[in-house]
Design a binder for these strands. Structure first.
Lengths: 249, 249
DNA sequence: GGGCCAGTCCCCAGAAATGGGGATTTCAGC
DNA sequence: GCTGAAATCCCCATTTCTGGGGACTGGCCC
């Protein structure tokens, strides 16, 4: 069976999974099939204090997990930090080239090795507005990473992360929970998000100041919020606006 | 040659490419190899310090590009909006399920069809705090998307995006140029994002109204923006805040 | 025709945010 | 012991937003 067929089958199984445990089992099997020993799919947060729900699935040795949590490595683990710098998977051997490794980083990598974790490959996964995350695969210490599996690992990691997003309900909005804005309301909100005042928006759209106020007023009503900031967050969350829209020059 | 071999070869070629034109040629060839006709790699950037040209590589028909620009569709293209809601590639047929399509959205999709663009597949890509974008592949109108190529399209899209980041020099800017907020600034922003007024935040945090104003003032300065809305967008984009934080009840 | 909705415009009063000045304390790092 | 950053507090004036009232047009659907 070709690698891509494996990826497709994996995707179907992930789609069918209905619990984090099932997803973990699928990842465990996939990791082993690719000659890895460990997997770790996680949001990069300080888990002990993070607001739920943050994603974390793995089959790392317990000793390592305890160490990790005790030292609050979520946000500072070098593998996680490196995964914030790229959009495709990378081998851990490239870490030193991607980051300036500090003494502490080296300690962390050493600690992992002592816990039995060998070489690895990490697939970053980011969705704007959500915690940064990644899906890593690692060999048992002493065993090499098999290059020929890495493209598949990239696919499997991405698919698994998206599956986790679904299972954790990170973007669930009830059937008709999504308020709809009119085109004009969205126009106004778009410029408001870019930091324009109502008066400036009026000039940009060629309508009166009062009309802009009116559109934004109604947009707030539709989302049931009273503040421009909340309106913006909701619109970004449900895809009415995107970061690209708002941040682009 | 297996699909994964194609991906590996593509990755090597992208690594070797030394100009956007070369990358475009590689993408054109890859798209055709996957039975697509068009590709479009758009890469929108937000780097307050170093103004970067936005990346746009594509082989769309000129008529469509003109239409797109004339009507200033950039900010509202539904494909771009959807690409911010997921971490894996999606077929355009799923757009309606991912977003509420407005009349204008349907017009855009119609316009694309009239310009000869058929069905497509879009791979989102995001690096927190730095850039977001996507790589799309589309068939000529009337031709179906070949499902069996989509896993490869996912790989090719991701590799191409990362190649564009390299070619546009985005990776050399150093990781930690982006603004960091102090704990207190983040506390204030967190509550501001949830719609609290400065006065309410002061009561919640047990500090004076003026101090809250001060923290938010300095937070705006760090991001180089003048409005609360912009501050919020930047913080969400680079992961300082997440939707989970802000929308959780 | 009547109802509904999007879009446009107008008014007002009060609350909130922004941009400018200041200031002190505490604590970590050199 | 000095420096710098963070956190705290205070004042001012101005702009901007929010919530409350209205009104008129042009489509669309039944």
């Amino acid at each position: 069976m070709g690698l891509v067929q494996i990826a497709e089958e994996f995707a179907q199984q992930v789609d069918a999974a209905s619990s984090p445990d099932e997803l973990a089992a699928l990842l465990d099997a996939a990791a082993r099939a690719m000659d890895f020993r460990f997997f770790a799919l996680t949001h990069h947060v300080d888990l002990p204090r993070a607001p739920q729900p943050a994603v974390r699935l793995h089959n790392y040795p317990l000793g390592w997990v305890d160490y990790f949590d005790e030292h609050r490595l979520g946000p500072c683990d070098p593998v996680h930090r490196a995964s914030h710098l790229t959009s495709v998977g990378f081998r851990w051997t490239r870490l030193a080239a991607m980051l300036d490794l500090t003494t502490r980083d080296r300690d962390i990598l050493h600690g992992a090795r002592r816990a039995g974790i060998g070489d690895g490959f990490t697939v970053p996964a980011h969705v704007p507005g959500e915690s940064a995350g990644s899906c890593s695969f690692a060999t048992a210490d002493g065993r090499p990473v098999r290059e020929e599996w890495l493209p598949l690992a990239q696919l499997v990691g991405a698919i698994a992360f998206e599956g986790a997003r679904r299972l954790w309900g990170l973007r669930e909005l009830g059937p008709d929970q999504r308020p709809k804005l009119t085109d004009r309301q969205r126009d106004c909100l778009y410029w408001a998000a870019r930091g324009k005042s109502d008066w400036e928006i009026a000039r940009i759209l060629g309508i009166s100041h009062d009309t802009v106020i009116q559109h934004l007023k109604q947009a707030r009503e539709r989302y049931g919020v009273g503040k421009r900031t909340q309106l913006l967050v909701h619109a970004l969350f449900d895809g009415t606006l995107t970061f690209v829209d708002v941040l682009r020059r």
